[in-house]
Amino acid sequence: MNWTAVATIYRAEMARFWRTFLQSFISPVLSTSLYFVVFGSAIGSRIQEVDGVEYGAFIVPGLVMLSVITQSISNASFGIYFPKFIGNIYEILSAPINFLEVVAGFVGAAATKSLFIGTVILCTASLFVDLSIQHPLAMVAFLVLTCLSFSLMGFIIGIWAGNFEQLQLVPLLVVTPLVFLGGSFYSISMLPPVWQTITLFNPVVYLVSGFRWAFFGQADVPVLLSLGAIGGFTLACMAVIWWIFKTGWRIRA
């Protein structure tokens, strides 16, 4: 491994983050606060409890997942699309580094950013509701794995995208609906039986469910299944990226 190169890419990507630190920090704090005002206070006051958990607290894992997933994808896809767009990707392609090193640098930085944002949201949430985390280690593991796997997915989107519209397309048309319909704001058991079955095809369900289990000890699907799902997703993304670099798809003529 060419660790110097990995650290170089990582640092350069993080530099972009620090340059816009204030907006990176303020925007998740603001949006989380808004969610709490609307869902937690206005609507949540009319909902008693979900699965024995106060509604305001119940939505925290879903909220964190929502932000972490969208941030991971947008950070990583932009990170690799930008040099493609500007043309300075030539430098990465002609450097003595392999695909693992490129991915480690770009995806590592994107995952770090969303991990930071996830943590900020958790801290903000704790100002509004009383948060108890039953399985802190599992919580961290789910959070890190989600940041990593969706940053990998973002990396693929960034390589696939041919313009800025396409860069927004997948997050907007696929990811956001999946996250909203993935039980971020409700328990699957609240759905009619047919929809309960359909919803199980949504991969985000497993993430939110597992993450929620780490907080409250309750899950819609078995926690090991959640872990397996996210592990499988990570491996699938890695395989796609390996194939991309092997064939040069969309990056190397």
Binding site: N2, I9, A12, A15, F82, I86, G87, E91, A95, I97
Partner: peptide, 24 residues
């Protein structure tokens, strides 16, 4: 390269230092 392909917002010293690090 033939085209000017540089990230507009970075500083000269940073981008040159980056290139060195990228080559390990």
């Amino acid at each position: 390269p033939q085209e000017i392909t540089l990230e507009p917002f970075t500083k000269v010293l940073d981008t040159v230092t980056f290139s060195r690090g990228l080559f390990g």
